[in-house]
Amino acid sequence: MSKFAVLIQVNLKTILRDRILHAILGAVVVGLLLVPAISSFSMRQVQELAISLALSGISFFLLVMAILLGSSSIWRDVEQRHTTSVLTLPLSRTTYVLAKFAAIAIFLLGTGILLGICSIPLISVAAASYPSDQPILWGNLVVALCGDIAKSMLIAAMALLLSSISTSFYLPFFGSVVLYLCGSASQEVYEYVTGEFVRAMHPLVIVIIKSVYCLLPNLAAFNYKVQAVYALPIPFEQIAWSVGYGTLYVAMILVLAVLTFNRRVLG
């Protein structure tokens, strides 16, 4: 097996053997099992609520895992001196950083798919109890799930970048939480400042907001929940844009992480 593959394997084992993960995963599964029960509280939107609860639950879990895993990765290896033993082997730091990301990404993909499969029967049960006037477009649900997985991967990459610079938990954790919040709101804010009701704002402020918008990750690009819940059509083109955007953005972040970590002096 290649060095890269073995490093990924080692990182995955480290992720999967963590007790905290087991606890969080257990809580999410219990939460998902409650979906049919909670959805039945809605009067007319049982199916819609079930879909939106399941997707949001999975999305939230993936987000929490992405932030926790990403922001406890590289700096912790440095602090616990794992890098002393691993990076003196003939392994490049590039391989090391990319394997860290790959392991987190594989974990997010795997658990995302797993939880997605788990929620199929739960949504079906809820939908059957009060048929909606809309069909369930499973294809849309898959797109929405993939969007959530992609979003969590992007957050993980951000957290990884921050943890490659940091020497403690604070910067990567709070940094990625803040980036997540900003990234979720950026599209709204952008639409607001480019909308027709903005006259009071200084043009300079608008320029600043627009450039920050271009810099920040646009997490709205990965949000297909509305389309999944209300069975709206999703043009293929839209998915292609999201994929292109996500790939480029993550690639940029990772290259940045590799560059910064390669320059870091590990005493």
Partner: peptide
């Protein structure tokens, strides 16, 4: 590449169904 993609990306983001929830 990102800068090249941005204008098209921003353009199509505005086409999406309302996201404000």
């Amino acid at each position: 590449a990102y800068l090249c993609l941005l204008p098209g990306f921003i353009g199509q983001m505005k086409e999406r169904p309302i996201e404000v929830k």
